[in-house]
């Protein structure tokens, strides 16, 4: 019995780790390259989920088309943010943060006006369930999220380590001025980072839309989780964000299962406070950009 419960909770944790890491990696990428904390990141996730609501649930397009559209749409939102908010405010990190709070309110209000505050119902893509044993099961849509996270994060890793663009991106994250002197366009790298970062949040929202309750305020809990993860992992460290996502997902899921959800939130936040006090640069962080 106990083994089965542990196995099932472990599976739930792997699923949670998958979508949390997609969101957190995007947030870290944006912070690394642009030096600004994007408070609207949870709302980008929400926008991705609503893309699926509109195209898949309401208009009946295939799920894959809706996901691709969600990725592109949210990526474009990211580009718009870069152009309208973060580029003019490049020398003003607090200003960028406040502007992203403004953008968050705009996106939330647009979702309320377009779809209403009620929870949206998204029909499941498939009813299939992988049955490991009587008490240990994994719904196939959750498996898709896990696989998508693995594929996308590996692709991102290859992109950053192996291509010229990725090399430029990492260079400007480490030292924007030196990178600019080497002929790397800061604006160009900022655009790429913003598109990828926002797109990852969008695809996380799109993939999880049939599995969670889609509503205009769903971004709030997600952004809190993402903050915890990037602090624990070390601000600006992509590997740290992934490791911290997995760690956080396991702690949170297990505490939720064995105690309750509010206690799990408190434990998560306390972990973050402890990391902030003991090692403010996070477990994997090096450079202090704050």
């Amino acid at each position: 019995m106990m083994v089965e419960l542990l196995a099932q909770t472990g599976l739930n944790a792997i699923y949670a780790a998958s979508y949390i890491s997609l969101i957190a990696v995007g947030l870290v990428l944006i912070f690394g390259v642009m030096g600004v904390i994007n408070f609207a990141h949870g709302e980008l996730y929400m926008a991705g989920a609503y893309a699926v609501v509109a195209l898949y649930a309401d208009l009946g397009f295939p799920f894959l088309v809706a996901i691709a559209a969600g990725l592109v749409f949210v990526g474009m939102l990211g580009l718009a943010m870069e152009r309208a908010l973060f580029r003019p405010l490049r020398d003003n990190p607090l200003g960028g943060l406040v502007a992203s709070i403004g953008f968050l309110m705009v996106l939330q209000a647009l979702a309320v006006m377009g779809f209403g505050v009620r929870m949206e119902h998204v029909p499941p893509v498939t009813q299939e369930v992988i049955v490991f044993s009587d008490k240990v099961r994994l719904a196939v849509p959750r498996l898709y999220v896990i696989l998508a996270a693995l594929v996308l994060l590996s692709a991102l890793w290859l992109f950053l380590k192996k291509t010229r663009f990725g090399w430029a991106l990492r260079a400007s994250a480490q030292d924007p001025e030196a990178a600019a002197l080497q002929g790397i366009s800061i604006t160009q790298t900022a655009r790429i980072a913003m598109f990828i970062g926002a797109g990852l949040a969008g695809i996380a929202g799109a993939l999880t839309a049939p599995l969670v309750s889609v509503n205009p305020h769903m971004g709030h809990s997600v952004i809190v989780t993402a903050f915890i993860v990037i602090i624990v992992g070390g601000v600006g460290s992509l590997e740290g964000a992934v490791v911290a996502s997995v760690a956080y997902a396991f702690v949170h899921t297990f505490v939720t299962t064995f105690w309750d959800g509010v206690i799990a939130d408190i434990v998560g936040l306390s972990l973050m406070l402890v990391v902030l006090i003991v090692r403010p640069t996070g477990l994997f962080g090096t450079a202090d950009r704050a």
Binding site: L85, I101, G102, F103, M105, V106, Q108, A109, L110
Partner: peptide, 9 residues
Amino acid sequence: PLIYGLVLI
């Protein structure tokens, strides 16, 4: 909230 956000930006 929309107008408030725009004013903030």
